[in-house]
């Protein structure tokens, strides 16, 4: 078959098609352009409100690198042990405070998870028929997770006094809000057949939850709790800023009072702890979820 015998589109049809294509892409391009313009305008507006001064930033960037240089300890190879001993002169106190930080995170996560556990069944659309109860549970959880934990900590410090107690409560409330939402989403995704089976035998709410829902959601709950514990360790490390316990107070003091090497010593401890907890919880989560998959 020769090339010129190939079927060709009628020129008028082709013209119309090409015009349609151009029109469609032009509309898309126009939308893109408008979106881009909006973005630029909002960037400029935000930059103006946030008092962004690139000149100042670049002029003072030297002080940032100098700061990093200043907080690093002076270590010599021939006297590394005494250097490290001097750097970590307060290790006993810092270790204790780090322990307290972990404890705040642990207790806060557990207490918060307990609250989330109880509320998640009330906030799940597939278990609770009463829209009023569900609405109340959901709004309450939303409130708990939207207000930042450090704001709760500020208020609790006034009510409960200084120390780790307000820190734990603040983390617990925030955790309850965050986990409550995740937990109720897990509950909404369960297989409903066991629930129907139990309801048909006349089981009440608690029995239905215990024997039809709980076995399906337990592993996911545990996995989310571990994830939250990791987040809460970071959160607990800053609770000390407002006097709510943990290592944050010492770090804040070191930064504010320019105890340079202390800053890097404490920061390094926090970073190592956070990374270690990261890896630990990840391993545990894989084991928990793996046990689920094997069943």
């Amino acid at each position: 078959m020769r090339a010129d015998t190939l079927p060709r589109l009628d020129p008028t049809v082709r013209d119309r098609l090409e015009r349609g294509y151009l029109y469609a892409t032009a509309a898309r391009r126009r939308r893109m352009l408008v979106g881009f313009g909006l973005l630029v305008v909002s960037i400029l507006l935000a930059g103006w409100i946030a008092e962004v001064q690139p000149a100042k930033f670049f002029a003072n960037f030297g002080s940032f690198t100098k700061y990093i240089h200043d907080i690093l300890p002076v270590l010599h190879l021939d006297a590394a042990d005494t250097g490290i001993a001097e750097w970590y002169w307060g290790w006993k106190r810092w270790l204790r405070l780090l322990g307290e930080t972990l404890l705040i995170a642990y207790v806060g996560t557990l207490v918060g998870a307990l609250g989330a556990f109880l509320l998640s069944f009330l906030a799940a659309g597939n278990l609770v028929r009463s829209p009023g109860l569900r609405f109340a549970a959901r709004r309450f959880l939303e409130f708990c997770r939207t207000v930042p934990e450090i704001v709760f900590a500020l208020i609790f410090v006034v009510a409960f006094g200084l120390g780790p107690v307000p820190g734990v409560l603040a983390i617990a409330i925030h955790t309850m809000g965050a986990l409550g939402k995740l937990f109720s989403e897990v509950v909404e995704n369960i297989d409903m057949k066991p629930v129907e089976g139990l309801v048909s035998t006349g089981a009440g709410f608690v029995e239905t939850v215990r024997f039809a829902v709980l076995p399906q959601v337990m592993t996911n709950y545990a996995s989310y709790m571990l994830l939250r514990f990791e987040v809460n360790v970071r959160g607990a490390a800053i609770m000390g800023y407002v006097g709510a316990g943990g290592i944050g107070q010492d770090l804040l003091e070191a930064i504010r009072k320019f105890y340079y090497t202390d800053v890097s010593a404490i920061l390094l401890m926090i970073i190592i702890t956070v990374v270690a907890i990261d890896m630990l919880t990840e391993t545990l989560r894989h084991r928990v979820l793996g046990a689920e998959g094997a069943r």
């Binding site: 409100i49 946030a50 008092e51 962004v52 001064q53 100042k56 930033f57 003072n60 960037f61 002080s63 940032f64 700061y67 450090i150 970071r234 490390a237 800053i238 800023y241 770090l251 804040l252 930064i255 504010r256 920061l267 926090i270 970073i271 956070v274 990374v275």
Partner: peptide
């Protein structure tokens, strides 16, 4: 690993107090 609040403290040393 370094929290936003700590970063804020460090940057305040560089560009001064304020939203920047």
């Amino acid at each position: 690993g370094v929290d936003t609040l700590i970063w804020a403290l460090i940057w305040i040393n560089v560009v001064g107090l304020g939203p920047f």
